[in-house]
Simulated scan of single mutants.
Amino acid sequence: MHIGILTLTFSLPGCGSLKEKRQRMGGMHERFGRNPAVAVCESAERDRLDTSEWSFVVVAISLRQVESLCSEIEDKVQRTVDGRVSKATRELL
């Protein structure tokens, strides 16, 4: 079994309130948490308006599957989140 941790830091220019931040980042749990191989949480920057950090823990039988799921998550986030990914890190365990 292989485990990967994908951490994405988002820049949210022009975000004026925590409510707006939640709307712009909303649905992360619903979009990615449905997959039983993925756990997702807001891992840092909860109180900052212009930044958000989310971590995804991916578990799979092979390292290739973990890397594939991480890539799918990154691609989908780029298309669906109203913000810019300013940093992406992957850690394989």
Score class of each variant (00 low, 15 high):
48 R>H: 12
65 Q>M: 08
45 E>V: 08
23 Q>H: 06
26 G>T: 01
65 Q>G: 04
76 K>L: 11
79 R>T: 02
44 A>Y: 11
61 I>A: 13
46 R>S: 00
75 D>P: 00
57 V>K: 06
64 R>H: 13
78 Q>L: 11
23 Q>L: 07
91 E>N: 10
47 D>M: 12
61 I>W: 12
26 G>W: 03
63 L>F: 06
40 V>W: 03
47 D>Y: 08
48 R>F: 05
56 F>D: 06
52 S>L: 12
81 V>L: 02
24 R>T: 07
16 G>I: 12
58 V>A: 05
19 K>E: 14
16 G>E: 15
32 F>M: 09
76 K>Y: 02
47 D>P: 00
60 A>L: 09
80 T>I: 15
17 S>G: 00
29 H>R: 15
90 R>Y: 04
29 H>T: 11
36 P>F: 11
83 G>T: 13
69 L>M: 12
89 T>S: 15
38 V>C: 01
76 K>T: 03
62 S>W: 01
25 M>V: 07
71 S>M: 11
33 G>C: 00
35 N>R: 02
87 K>T: 13
67 E>I: 02
38 V>L: 03
59 V>C: 12
57 V>P: 05
34 R>A: 05
70 C>R: 13
85 V>D: 08
83 G>V: 12
60 A>F: 11
24 R>C: 07
41 C>L: 15
56 F>L: 01
70 C>D: 11
28 M>R: 14
83 G>F: 11
85 V>C: 09
75 D>H: 10
49 L>W: 01
48 R>W: 06
45 E>H: 04
36 P>E: 09
20 E>H: 11
43 S>V: 10
44 A>M: 14
74 E>V: 03
54 W>Q: 08
64 R>A: 11
65 Q>F: 00
56 F>Q: 05
28 M>W: 10
59 V>G: 07
49 L>Q: 01
64 R>V: 09
27 G>Q: 03
72 E>N: 10
36 P>C: 14
56 F>S: 06
82 D>Q: 14
27 G>A: 00
66 V>E: 06
74 E>F: 02
33 G>M: 03
78 Q>F: 06
85 V>Q: 13
76 K>S: 10
72 E>T: 05
75 D>V: 07
62 S>V: 00
26 G>S: 01
